[in-house]
Write a protein that binds this DNA or RNA. Structure first.
Length: 929
RNA sequence: GCCCGGAUGGCGAAAUCGGCAGACGCAGCGGACUUAAAAUCCGCAGACCCGAAACGGUCGUGGGGGUUCAAGUCCCCCUCCGGGCACCA
């Protein structure tokens, strides 16, 4: 026994030490007999006894769980997917890969407990399951740790991965470690580079100088998606600065419309996530309209543009600046984007962003205006950096110039305003105070005319002497008719929008336009620990792509991480200095690295063929496994990772690599783990260590509590007493099964299909009925709402009932066949939630082969059906009695039973029955007067 | 401001269809076992009223109205909490 145990341990250690980069054996079907042949050695307990009578033994997870870990580690094929040739239906279940911070937190435990329960259920349902795990291993924390501890980022990261892999194995999570993906290793990130080159060839990756988000703490650029309320997504207090930098971008906007349309087909995604993505893409349908700028000095009025500020001030008095006729047009024009072209006759000014080209042109010759515009720009900048760009106090300044409304021919004063964003639409708007809340506010402040061109909805307010109509301004509804709009009068707003857009187009001063909020993805990062961008800058040839055969561009391992700015790679001459692939002359490498969201945009494709050396993945394996059947993770990635992944999938499809449009068929976003009212976090000091929980209560109880406490989509308030409760429950199961296992074993094992006993003893009937009801309930939970809290509650009810009937189990009134059926089914029901205990008890019941390879128990509707049900009887809707009636009784019988009840008779005394409502199986309600 | 969630005992929650509100668990209380404790097992447990008792009554699912024989569940209005978006023209 001891010798065997030692051999077993050695085997386990040998398998264990295979690092993530090592090529493991290919997956084979599980050999159940080989598995069974591996002895599970029992360690002696603390008092030195060597395994006394099992039935006396208490539930000690610390004794059970390590033995099974070793066995599972020695048999990685148990959790391995079968190849695409499998005749089982495929099921790809995936949890979001973690950043290897060094330790799992409870959020991870919860996420993985959900995924693992599902994977195990699907295995037992006879599916070919792919359930992989990997590491999002590039990123800034490794550099910070390097600074702090003087450890190379690679060493730190790989050590963390090893530690976390150990924790996952300790939790008993059933991952296929043979497909493990580690994004910081060259065999992975070389394909980031490869994809980058493919995108560069197609113009999907490009370099441009622009205003970018800069986080001083990260010392790098951030994508728009990584800025939350003007602050860094990693550093919530850190205001993001705007810097002008030359950066690499991926053309996500090429797919704006497709990313939006695709959401319609994702009917198994949470509505919330789809809404967030819709908002982020921010499609807006409208029109661009060109306003000619009135020629300079025309009509004796516009020459005032050259006049001093006091002159102009006079002109700011609303109507007085709007003469009936405009002068002649110059060659300049201002284009505006509007979603309400139907209100164009109500436009009383144009508002331009301070950065607008025309404004820049005007300030060149107008010192006073230049100062005012600079002030507006400063306000914008300050507001943006304070995260208050959304609530900036509106300021504006009249430029002294006028534009001509192409519909009405009217002159409109051109203003510059701080609330107009240069980066959206045309960077200029037509201001319609009567029908836009912002324009209204601005017009009120500066006394601009408010002209109503849409029939107002009126609210009627009763006043002291009758009814008074109060106009609602601004009126922004689109459900009314146009007025004061020339030939478009009396059209509905929506109809007018189409007609007026066509009119503008036909006359050459406008065009229907769709704008998006989505921006191209800035992927350059001025950091070391990421994928080098495979580009070289040559004095002669300029930007040159690194040829495929030179990939991977390896990240140098010897690097000094400092806090000084700039890309660390730029300080390594051996990396920077290279030769141009085109001319062979001296050239410099790109020293920025890629955003780590590149890594996670396609990692789940790599799992299908993680050892593929000649391509990012085996396309036939991807064709088999995709789309992912179930993806599980936190909602915080709704518009980061999940939108990038959808983009990347489409990009790969257009490269001809894959056929699917979407990576994920079904998405589940689990709730946060909170404690004491706020999210568990180190900074708040309210974390609970999974290791502590496992040490105290075992992995089974820790996992099961995370499923039992609340449904998986809600926030979970971690209460340690609850874990103790689940642990007590597992102890009950353990004791119950151990106690009765010897007699259960005395019956022959039944083949699964014939497992339901034909003959049911009177003593066993109650237990069997509850058993089959429980199977039904849990099966429904897995297929439906995933309310595992009620699944586990149902198992608890079952166990409570079985314990009440223990005497009949011991006495033999319940037959050995029945007993075996009951206990085995109980263990099978527990298998998705408590893998260790169920594996242990499965063997204890005299079975070989892993519990995971057993078919999920079937339920017998006949057996599950109650013979008698308790039926509430109400009088006038109030509960008055409960009667016991045969299940499935008809209305007549139910009415008779209700009327015959003593309490009902008494309550009806002296009353007249008006009618009786019978809902079979639900209730009887007697309406009486 | 707009869009999503949510609000049920001391606590986490349950009640897939409108049909016994509070399953299951935690904490609590009582009992059994024990010299004792722990562990375990059995039982009690929404609030209030009446009473010796209770398989007696009333109230009760954030608040107010409504629909219905019947509402935690459906409809209208409101409050609070959480999340997302936000001068995006």
């Amino acid at each position: 026994m001891i010798k065997q145990e030692l051999e077993f341990r050695e085997a386990a250690v040998g398998e264990h030490s295979s690092g993530s980069g090592t090529v493991a054996k290919p997956a084979t079907a599980v050999d159940a007999t080989a598995l069974a042949a591996v002895p599970v050695a029992k360690t002696s307990d603390s008092e030195g006894r060597t395994d006394v009578e099992p039935r006396e033994e208490r539930y000690r997870p610390a004794d059970i769980e390590p033995r099974w870990q070793e066995r599972w580690a020695a048999h990685p094929e148990l959790y391995a997917a079968e190849p695409a040739t499998s005749n089982k239906p495929k099921y790809y279940v995936l949890e979001m890969l973690p950043y290897p911070s060094g330790a799992l937190h409870m959020g991870h435990v919860r996420n993985y407990s959900i995924g693992d329960a599902l994977a195990r259920y699907m295995w037992m349902q006879g599916h070919n399951v792919l359930h992989p795990m990997g590491w999002d291993a590039f990123g800034l924390p490794a550099e910070n740790a390097a600074l702090k501890n003087n450890t190379p980022p690679r060493d730190w990261t790989l050590a963390n991965i090893a530690a976390m892999r150990r924790q996952m194995q300790r939790l008993g999570l059933g991952y296929d470690w043979q497909t493990e993906v580690t994004t910081c290793l060259p065999d992975y990130y070389r394909w980031n580079q490869w994809f980058f080159l493919r995108m560069y060839e197609r113009g999907l990756a490009y370099r441009k100088k622009s205003k970018v988000n800069w986080c001083p703490q990260c010392a790098t650029v951030l994508a728009n998606e990584q800025v939350v309320n003007g602050c860094c997504w990693r550093h919530e207090e850190q205001i993001v600065e705007q810097r002008d930098l030359e950066q690499w971008f991926l053309r996500t906007t090429n797919y704006s419309q497709e990313l939006l349309d695709g959401l319609e087909k994702l009917d198994q995604w949470p509505e919330k996530v789809k809404t967030m993505q819709r908002n982020w893409i921010g499609r807006s349908e409208g029109a661009t309209v060109d306003f000619a700028v009135e020629a300079h000095g025309e009509d004796g009025i516009a020459e005032d543009a050259e006049a001093d500020g006091s002159e102009r001030k006079l002109r700011r008095d609303g109507k007085s600046v709007l003469p009936a006729r405009a002068g002649t047009a110059s060659n300049d024009k201002v284009s505006v984007f509007t979603t309400r072209i139907d209100t164009i006759y109500g436009a009383t000014s144009l508002q331009l962003a301070p950065e607008h080209a025309l404004v820049q042109q005007l300030v060149a010759t107008d010192v006073k205006l230049a100062q005012e515009v600079t002030a507006l720009l400063d306000q914008q900048k300050m507001a943006r950096e304070a995260g208050e760009i959304g609530t900036i106090e509106k300021h504006g300044v009249f430029t002294g110039r006028y534009a001509i409304n192409p519909f009405s021919g009217e002159r409109l004063p051109i203003w510059v305003a701080n609330y107009i964003l240069a980066g959206y639409g045309a960077g200029a708007i037509m201001s319609v105070p009567a029908h836009d809340a912002r324009d209204y506010e601005f017009a009120q402040k500066y006394g601009l005319e408010v002209r109503i061109v849409v029939l107002l909805r009126r609210t009627t307010e009763p006043t002291g002497n009758g009814v008074e109509e109060s106009p609602m301004l601004p009126y922004t509804g689109e459900d009314s008719l146009l007025i004061n709009s020339g030939e478009f009068n009396m059209l509905g707003c929506q109809e007018a929008q189409h007609k007026m857009a066509s009119f503008a187009k036909d006359n050459g001063f406008g065009t229907p336009t769709v704008t998006y909020r989505l921006r191209d993805w800035g992927v350059s990062r001025q950091r070391y620990w990421g994928t080098p961008i495979p580009i070289v800058y040559c004095v002669k040839d300029g930007i040159v792509a690194v040829p495929d055969e030179q990939l991977p561009i390896l990240l140098p391992q010897q690097v000094e991480i400092t806090q000084q700015g700039g890309s660390p790679l730029g300080r390594i001459p051996s990396f920077v200095e290279t030769t141009c692939p085109k001319c062979g002359g001296p050239a410099r490498r790109e020293t920025d690295t890629m955003d780590t969201f590149v890594d996670s945009s396609w990692y789940f494709y790599r799992y299908t063929s993680a050892k593929e050396a000649s391509a990012p993945f085996d396309t036939s394996a991807v064709a088999y496994w995709f789309p992912i059947d179930q993806y599980i993770g936190g909602v915080e990635h709704a518009i980061l990772h999940l939108i990038y992944s959808r983009f990347w999938t489409r990009m790969m499809r257009d490269l001809g690599l894959i056929k699917n449009d979407e990576p994920v068929a079904r998405l589940f976003t689990q709730g946060m783990v909170i404690r004491g009212g706020s999210k568990m976090s180190k900074s708040k000091g309210n974390t609970v260590s999974p290791d502590d929980m496992i040490a105290r209560y075992g992995a089974d109880a820790t996992r099961m509590y995370s499923l039992f406490a609340t449904p998986p989509d809600r926030d979970l308030d971690w209460q340690e007493d609850g874990v103790a409760g689940v642990s007590r429950f597992l102890g009950k199961v353990h004791r119950l099964v151990m106690k009765h296992a010897p007699r259960a074993r005395s019956s022959e094992p039944q083949p699964p299909t014939a497992a339901i006993p034909r003959e049911v003893s009177p003593a066993g009937l109650k237990s069997l009925r509850k058993l089959h009801q429980t199977v039904r309930k849990i099966t429904q939970d897995f297929q439906g709402r995933w309310h595992f809290n009620t699944s586990i509650a149902a198992i608890m009810e079952l166990v409570n009932l079985l314990m009440l009937g223990e005497a009949s189990m011991s006495s033999g009134e319940v037959s050995a066949v029945e007993l075996r059926h009951i206990l085995e089914t109980l263990v099978l029901l527990l298998a998705p939630f408590a893998p260790y205990l169920s594996a242990e008890l499965w063997e204890e019941l005299g079975n070989t082969g892993d519990v995971l390879r057993q078919p999920w128990p079937a339920f017998d509707e006949e057996l599950a059906r109650e013979e008698e049900v308790e039926l509430p009887v109400q009088i006038n809707g109030k509960l008055r009695s409960v009667v016991c009636v045969p299940a499935g009784a008809d209305e007549k019988t139910l009415t008779a039973a209700a009327m015959a009840d003593q309490k009902i008779k008494a309550a009806l005394d002296g009353k007249q029955v008006v009618k009786v409502i019978v809902v079979p199986g639900r209730a009887v309600n007697i309406v009486a007067r």
